[in-house]
């Protein structure tokens, strides 16, 4: 057991000899896909609540497709499926993009978390109280200003609890990257497990690392909620 830890601890955390692996890769996968997913979800959640039925339905089709199928299948489809198409291999730019496991993984993670985040944000936008919108209108705000100053800041704050859940689920979902040969925490654990025939120790360390990151995320979102949702806390708690 000590041998396993001695040989693999660096790989579990940040990698060796300029080859990043483990925790660093997991965090990078999570941050990148969550940020890109967020950028995708902002315009799409606006499209989702659009009064134009075509725009709204098209967005629903996207979110339904990606929420109704397993992320593992989406990853396989993007990583192995798309690259098997002759048209993709024949186009230099597409060939360049889909050849790389990391790019394919990030693409599938982004599209997946983007779909869930779109629905979370759209739900929060729909739940904006009419009084806030009326107040904005009474100030003579245009629709754009109204969204920028009133609806989005208010909705994104209220979406925080559900969004924090999605971010943690995304952290957990990054484990699928190990199936696409990316050296995240789980991939290091799989290598260590087969190297030493100590599955409990190897996977146990991985579980512990994920647990620590999950708790840190929960805690930081808790702080964020205290700050940005202070106005929605019950009065009694606020005094305490």
């Amino acid at each position: 057991m000590m041998d396993l830890i001695k040989e693999y601890w660096q790989q579990y955390l940040w990698g060796t000899e300029g080859r990043p692996s483990g925790m660093v890769v997991t965090l990078w996968l999570t941050i990148l896909s969550v940020c890109l997913g967020f950028m995708l979800a902002i315009p799409l959640s606006l499209a989702r609540v659009s009064t134009n039925p075509i725009i709204s339905r098209l967005t629903l089709a996207y979110t339904y497709l990606f929420r109704g199928t397993p992320l593992y299948v989406q990853l396989l489809l993007i990583y192995t499926g798309i690259y098997s198409l002759h048209a993709v291999r024949a186009t230099p730019l597409l060939n360049y993009f889909f050849r790389d496991a990391f790019r394919c993984t990030i693409l599938s993670f982004t599209l997946n978390t983007g779909a869930y985040t779109t629905e979370i944000f759209a739900g929060a936008i729909r739940a904006t109280s009419l009084g806030e919108i009326e107040a904005g209108r009474a100030f003579g705000m245009s629709t754009l200003t109204l969204y920028r100053r009133i609806i989005l800041p208010s909705a994104l704050r209220r979406a925080l609890p559900a969004y924090s859940n999605e971010v943690i689920l995304m952290l957990h979902a990054t484990t699928l990257a190990s199936t696409a040969t990316i050296a995240d925490i789980l991939k290091v654990a799989r290598n260590a497990a087969s190297d030493y025939y100590l599955p409990f120790v190897a996977y146990g360390i991985a579980a512990l690392l994920y647990l620590v990151v999950s708790f840190l995320l929960v805690w930081s979102f808790h702080l964020a909620e205290r700050k940005w949702l202070a106005h929605l806390r019950p009065a009694i708690k606020r005094m305490g």
Binding site: H172, A173, T175, S178, L186, L198, F200, Y203, A207, L211
Partner: peptide
């Protein structure tokens, strides 16, 4: 708390291979 803090794939591999071992 423990189960929801650890990814399902990690738990699956941990339990499956440890138990087999």
């Amino acid at each position: 708390t423990l189960i929801r803090g650890v990814p399902d794939l990690v738990l699956m591999l941990l339990l499956f291979y440890s138990f087999q071992d």
